[in-house]
Every structure is written in structure tokens, then in C-alpha cells.
Design a binder for these strands. Structure first.
Length: 269
DNA sequence: ATGGCGTATGGAATACGA
């Protein structure tokens, strides 16, 4: 008996406004589970029925009014749901659940890390301080994760850590999301938890790899000034079971798009 | 040309994203 699990993560920038393209995505890609960030939707207003109609009957949400918010929707049951508040901000930025893979529970973390504002200096920009504190708390909390257990951590982590995760390493050195301080902290969180950067397993470090393109470009695809802000981290126990990852760049060009494209990962037992 | 736009709230103008 071999199992195959397809997982997707997508910063949707308002789930209610984006339901037409979410439905298109679920129909075309048909992942087993989809992790959404920036749902911007109070829990009472979440579009449950549209997901159920699309075959995603297992729905866990951690939403709030106006900002942030994450949701995990699945064709397989979700168990042991946990919603952790980071930095005592009252923000909805995390949701974890167990999903069955190859007959055992796989722990799936869905994160929306703070963007961090404009100035990369915590003395003058509290949002940047919040982002740094969030990663520090994430690192400590994830220490409790047993690295020999099957686990996946996905989401909009709001850092493009490597040189070719941005369109211009030089131009972005002082831009929040690619400052050396953030990149080092990001790598510290990842390596401390012994997580594997699944996307870079399949795309060499010398190749450009983006998941986000600004709304402000006249022609986002021609300009191609992207960043890799969305990530798929995999525990050591799943090493050897990651069959591939890809960015659905096409979705950035769909009708009324999110500024992020979905990332898809396939696992096989 | 890293903001030239887009979203939520609320019902205009502001906060926020990255």
C-alpha cells in the first residue's frame, strides 16, 4: 500500500473575494489539502459551503476581522487542531492539524508570518521588531517538534532567504523580506528544527524562484521582479518522500489574482 | 519605478501589505 499526498499553500489575499479562482485551482490541481493565508475573513463569514461543494469537507480556520487569518481545507480528516497565538498580539497567524499520510498522522503547520513594515530597524519600526520576535518564538516553540516525526510546515513566511529568491539580491539588501538579519534568522529557525527546504530540493540555488509579484508592476510577468516568500518545510522523517514541488505561476495571471502564486508539493510513501 | 496597486472597513479616507 503506497500513499500519495498532494499539498498546496497559497496566500489568497481575501478568501471571499478570491473564491472563483480558489474553485478553479481546486478543480484543476485537486490537492488533498490546501493551506490558505491572509483569508481576511471573520470565522462566521468563512465560505464553508463553497469548499464543501468542491469536495473539501474538512475545514479548520483561524480567522479575524480585516487582517491576517489562516485556513486549512482538506479532503482527508483533520485532527488535533491547534491554533497558537504568537507574540501575545491576538493575531490569527497559525493553525496546525494532523492529516493521515501512509496510515500515520502527519503534523501540518500553516503559518502567516508578519510582513514587518517598511523600515528594517526595530528601534524605529515596531512591526519589524514584531517580525523578529515572531521568528524567535517560532524557533523556540518548534524545538518541541520531534524531528523524527512526519511534519510539514508551510505558509507565507515573508522572507526570501537566498540570493536567487529575489529578482535582485543587491537591490533588496535593505528591503524588508531580504535583509541579512531576516535571512539569517530564517535559516536559524529552519536549521534548528532540522527542516528541509523542499522547494530548493527541486530547484537549484542558482535558479531564480519566486512565489510573489507586486500588484504595482504594469506587467508583473514581463518585469518579473518577484520574491520567494512562500515556503514548504519538511521534517527529516519525510526526506525521501518528497516527490516534487512547483509554483503555479499561471495563477498569478488569473482573473482578479492574489499577488502570491500557490506552491504545490507532492509526497509519496 | 520597492511602489506606479489592491483589500477591508465602512460608507470617505485610512491602515496595511511587501
Amino acid at each position: 500500500m503506497t500513499d500519495r499526498l498532494t499539498l498546496a499553500t497559497w496566500n489568497i489575499n481575501s478568501v471571499r473575494l478570491r473564491m472563483p479562482i480558489v474553485e478553479k485551482f481546486l478543480e484543476e490541481i485537486a490537492p488533498d489539502v490546501l493551506c490558505l493565508q491572509e483569508t481576511k475573513c471573520p470565522d462566521a463569514n468563512f465560505p464553508f459551503n463553497a469548499f464543501r461543494k468542491a469536495g473539501y469537507e474538512h475545514i479548520e480556520i483561524n480567522g479575524q476581522k480585516g487582517y491576517h487569518g489562516v485556513a486549512t481545507v482538506s479532503r482527508r480528516p483533520l485532527a488535533n487542531v491547534e491554533k497558537r497565538g504568537f507574540c501575545d498580539m491576538g493575531d490569527s497567524r497559525h493553525l496546525a492539524a494532523d492529516i493521515a499520510f501512509n496510515g500515520s498522522p502527519l503534523r501540518l503547520h500553516n503559518f502567516y508570518v508578519p510582513a514587518g513594515g517598511d523600515e528594517p530597524d526595530r528601534e524605529i519600526n515596531p512591526k519589524f521588531g514584531h517580525k523578529l520576535d515572531f521568528f524567535a518564538e517560532m524557533k523556540n516553540w518548534l524545538q518541541g517538534t520531534e524531528t523524527d516525526k512526519a511534519a510539514v510546515l508551510v505558509g507565507d513566511l515573508n522572507v526570501a532567504p537566498y540570493e536567487h529568491d529575489v529578482w535582485s539580491h543587491k537591490a533588496l539588501l535593505k528591503v524588508v523580506s531580504h535583509t541579512p538579519l531576516e535571512c539569517e534568522l530564517f535559516e536559524d529557525v529552519r536549521t534548528t528544527g532540522k527542516w528541509i527546504d523542499a522547494m530548493r530540493r527541486f530547484t537549484p540555488l542558482d535558479d531564480k524562484l519566486y512565489t510573489w509579484w507586486s500588484y504595482r508592476a504594469k506587467d508583473w510577468s514581463a518585469a518579473d521582479k518577484g520574491r520567494r516568500l512562500d515556503h514548504v518545510w519538511v521534517s527529516q522523517a519525510l526526506d525521501g518522500h518528497i516527490k516534487g514541488t512547483r509554483v503555479l505561476r499561471d495563477a498569478r495571471g488569473w482573473e482578479k489574482p492574489s499577488d502570491h502564486a500557490p506552491v504545490i508539493a507532492v509526497f509519496e510513501a
